[in-house]
Each structure stands twice: as structure tokens, then as C-alpha cells.
Design a protein around this nucleic acid. Sequence first.
DNA 1: GACTCAAGTGCCGTGTGCAA
DNA 2: TTGCACACGGCACTTGAGTC
Length: 227
Amino acid sequence: MTVTRLLVIEQDKVFSDRMSGVLRGQGYEVTQCFDSQQGLTAALSKNIDLILLDASLPTIEGLSLLQRIRISIPIPIMVLSAENLEQSRIEYYQQGADDFIAKPANMIEILLRVKAVLRRTFEQENKNSSVLDVDQLTLVRAQQQVMFNGDHLEFTPIQFRLLWVLVENRYQVMSKPYLYQAVLDRAFSRYDRSLDMHLSRIRKKLVEMGMAADRLATVHGKGYRFA
DNA sequence: GACTCAAGTGCCGTGTGCAA
DNA sequence: TTGCACACGGCACTTGAGTC
């Protein structure tokens, strides 16, 4: 099971706790640091997938810390700042920030933007490594090919994308809004049943080939999970 | 024979309604 | 709230008739 590790470097403990709580609730492993030195050490020593960096840190201010981390490790960094001036945003982007969020920030927006940055990053990483191999199931992105126990299965482009996202995020509950955006490239609508239909067809095909139905599980009111 | 174009066909994605 | 069956529309591809 792959857990996405986030590092939150934020001096405001209340804000940090709130943000970390929301992120943990989505299954992320979150390390919190409250000053820049501690944050720098954690960023360099731990195996982190994404950093949320407060721009107004004491000791080493945000821009300097961003530069130091960016020189050392190539991971996505999102900057949170109360100073939402165009010039400062440009400076952060120039120094390697992957996203900029103005405070006070909405927790849902932060969460969605974290997901978006991670998605962009992982998509880039996965562009060339295009095979997923999980137990008896093999997915080849280039040929959009699905094999179960060595038997070839026919999937439509959307069905393949949906299965790919679920297998790629194995054990994680993938929310419907996320799947709509990632697979169908449109916003989730409560009464839109398209995704359910695609998932139903994928499940049917895999079960017919001998896969246990509960491996492609529905998490009531939350989304779907492949295990 | 080569080309164009309309009609037919099948696949895919979506919407709706019903049952669980 | 979800799974499923069914119907429908859009689109691409194939086929066959008509024209040059």
C-alpha cells in the first residue's frame, strides 16, 4: 500500500492542526513542523511527496526556505501566504513553487489543490512507466490493454482510465468528484450516473474473468476503492 | 477503375427509471 | 445511495449506388 506523505511547515499551530486534520481525513500521512529549521530538516530527511509551506516563517523566511528545499529535493511545494501580491506570487513561482494559496484559505480548496498538484506530479512521473501490475491484473497504458490471469480483456477508453485510476490508487477510497474529473474530465453531478455505469461494467468484466467482486468495492457515500 | 456521397451498421457514452 | 436494464443519440466505419 502506497501512502502519500505530506509535510506541513506552518507556524500557526491552530491553522496547521486544522489543515493537517483535513488532509489526514483523506488518507494522507502528514508531518507537522512549526518552524523553518525543523521544517528544513524534515524535508531533507523524510521521504516526502509534497510540502505545504507557510511563507511567513520565523528564522528562515518562506522564500529562502523554498530556495533551500528546491535546490536539494525535486518535490512539489505549495506556498501558503497572507501576502497575496502579484509580485510576491511571481517570486515564489520563480523560485520553484508549484502552487500558491492566499490565506485565509478554504480547507476544501487547499485539499483540492493538493490533489491537483499531486495528480500533475504523478502523471508526469507515470508518463513513461505505463504498466500497472497488481496480483493477477495487468494494465498497459500505451495499448490500453487489460489482462487478468494472462487473459486479455476488452475495455473502452473511459473504462480503462477509470480502472487505471483505481488500481493506481489501490486501497485508497477515490471520491466520485475526483473520479469524474480524472476520468470523464467534468464536474461531478449528484444525479449523473455515468460513472456508476462505467464502474459496473468494469466490475462485471473482471468478475466474469474470476476476480472477487469485493475487490472493486463501493464505499457508500464516499466513492470507490480497488483492493 | 477511381472517386464521391448517402444509407446502413455497430460501438460507445449518457440518461432514465426501477429495484435493492 | 447504488446497481442494473434499457433506450437513445452521436460518431466512426463500412457498403453500395451513382458519376466521371
